[in-house]
Design a protein around this nucleic acid. Sequence first.
DNA 1: ATATCACCTAAACCTAACTTTAGGTCAATA
DNA 2: TATTGACCTAAAGTTAGGTTTAGGTGATAT
Lengths: 141, 141
Amino acid sequence: MYTIGQVSEMFGLPVSTLRYYDKEGLFPNMRRESGIRKFDDKEIEALRVIECLKKSGLEIKDIKLFMQWCAQGSDTYSQRKDLFIRQKEAVKAEIERLNQVLDMLIFKCWYYDEAIKAGSEEHLAGMTPENMPDEVKEAFK
Amino acid sequence: MYTIGQVSEMFGLPVSTLRYYDKEGLFPNMRRESGIRKFDDKEIEALRVIECLKKSGLEIKDIKLFMQWCAQGSDTYSQRKDLFIRQKEAVKAEIERLNQVLDMLIFKCWYYDEAIKAGSEEHLAGMTPENMPDEVKEAFK
DNA sequence: ATATCACCTAAACCTAACTTTAGGTCAATA
DNA sequence: TATTGACCTAAAGTTAGGTTTAGGTGATAT
């Protein structure tokens, strides 16, 4: 059982953010004592899941839905599982996209390395992959 | 030499977005003919870089800076390279973060699989890694 | 000749996810 | 007793990255 200030410390989140999450319905049936929020283990675990789902790209309103499913009990297991499957695929896709971006960035680092060495970019204009180090070739498409 | 409509098609970006980028200074000294924007190869290449830097998490105002460096010539090679190095590290870090999120999501998929099989979550409360498949263990921390 | 189409601008609008502000309660400390 | 500190609310403000609107120009198709 923690106060909002303690939870803020634990998670490194501003108090205002926790209040905002609560207002958005991310902690359905959180306890209160004379108006003051009491974060139980259930809310702490919820917050961990919130952080995870947020990082996976889910919006607050959809996280709210998930939390409502949790409050509804075992009838919603498969909806919850499906959500996690969707987010899993979304994160996989995002990682793939970022790996392509990474290739391009690796190429650009090499490109400017060469440009700095030569003092100009001119010789880099009609470049073919043969003249590039292996790690850079991939990025050339 | 392309019109804004052609570039919109090529990149799958709304015309309004291209105008917005221009207004934000992402195409310094783009040509115009009687008021109408002309996208040359330089701008097309710029747009490719813009897409990459955006996906790497760079803000528009910093992309604008980069484009100004490009317009300034060879004096700014090392600043440009440093930027790409920074973004490369940022993307690497982001990929790592997402891999952790992915672990958690894999765990949750397994968790709800078990819960569905058993009809309840009760037996999952005091779980230790031994009872989990290999791919799931990592996510348990 | 008129209507449509692609282009233009400035300015208002939009959305998500917070953050800030202004004002208030209550308990403990100086 | 007065003030500090942790909590509360409702409502307004903020930011990034666009999108939409309203009004205008000029070339081509009917």
